[in-house]
């Protein structure tokens, strides 16, 4: 995963609540077996007309927001489906940081796994940052994860909170799996202990054709 330290970039304002992951990336684009290439489909329903042409009113179709690296929205960004295709699409578009009063849990988590920093800030501050964002290309925001501040174009700094563990992983660009596997001994010990405490937990046997041969209850 790419590390996140500081980012200076154009922010796009999207003053809407409940922007769900179906809006960020509609289900018809989830048929890929890869992570990359989803950027052109990000916000497809809002970004394109039925004939495939661009909707000129949609913020990410306007200059300078076509080059946005930060997205600012209202409450509950990323609600709905768990699809990690949502942060993949944002990342592929170029978004590395999302700012909102709050986020849906799974989306919030998925962002960190992909080097996107989600920042929770009160709604009035999101409003102020959207005001900055509307000033366009000369009004870039700087997000400094090391110091945990968002720097506005006028130089004022807005502190934000982030979980220390997630911050560390993001700053270092660390792989969760590698970290967990360092605790392999503890996992094995736990498994041994549980096998004794809960011997009833059955194993799912491999079924060649899926038919277990037992009569099924529904």
């Amino acid at each position: 995963m790419r590390a996140f330290t500081t980012l200076t970039g154009i922010a796009a304002p999207m003053p809407a609540e409940n922007i769900d992951t179906d809006q960020i990336i509609p289900a018809r684009f989830l048929k890929t077996i890869e992570r990359s290439g989803l950027g052109r489909h990000a916000f497809a329903g809002l970004r394109y007309e039925a004939d495939g042409s661009e909707n000129p009113d949609f913020v990410l179709n306007k200059e300078p927001y076509r080059r946005a690296e930060i997205l600012i929205t209202y409450d509950n960004l990323g609600c709905g489906s768990s699809r990690e295709h949502a942060p993949w699409a944002l990342l592929d578009f170029g978004i590395r940081c999302v700012i909102a009063p709050n986020f849906a849990d799974i989306f919030y988590n998925n962002c960190f796994k992909n080097g996107i920093l989600p920042i929770r800030l009160p709604r009035e501050i999101c409003d102020a940052l959207m005001g900055d964002a509307r000033l366009g290309a000369n009004a870039r925001l700087t997000v400094d994860l090391e110091r945990q501040v968002v720097c506005r174009p006028d130089g004022t700094e807005i502190p934000f909170e982030v979980d220390a563990f997630r911050r560390h992983m993001l700053l270092e660009g660390l792989d969760d799996i590698g970290l967990t596997l360092r605790h392999d001994g503890a996992i094995t010990a736990f498994e041994t202990k549980r096998k004794q405490a809960e011997p009833w937990m059955p194993e799912i046997r491999k079924t060649a054709d899926g038919e277990s041969g037992t009569s099924q209850k529904v």
Partner: peptide, 21 residues
Amino acid sequence: AFGIGTSEVEHVLATQTLLQK
């Protein structure tokens, strides 16, 4: 029981665990 993203799917496949609070 809860939903997870694909990175976490990989994490569970590899480790049978998740990092959670």
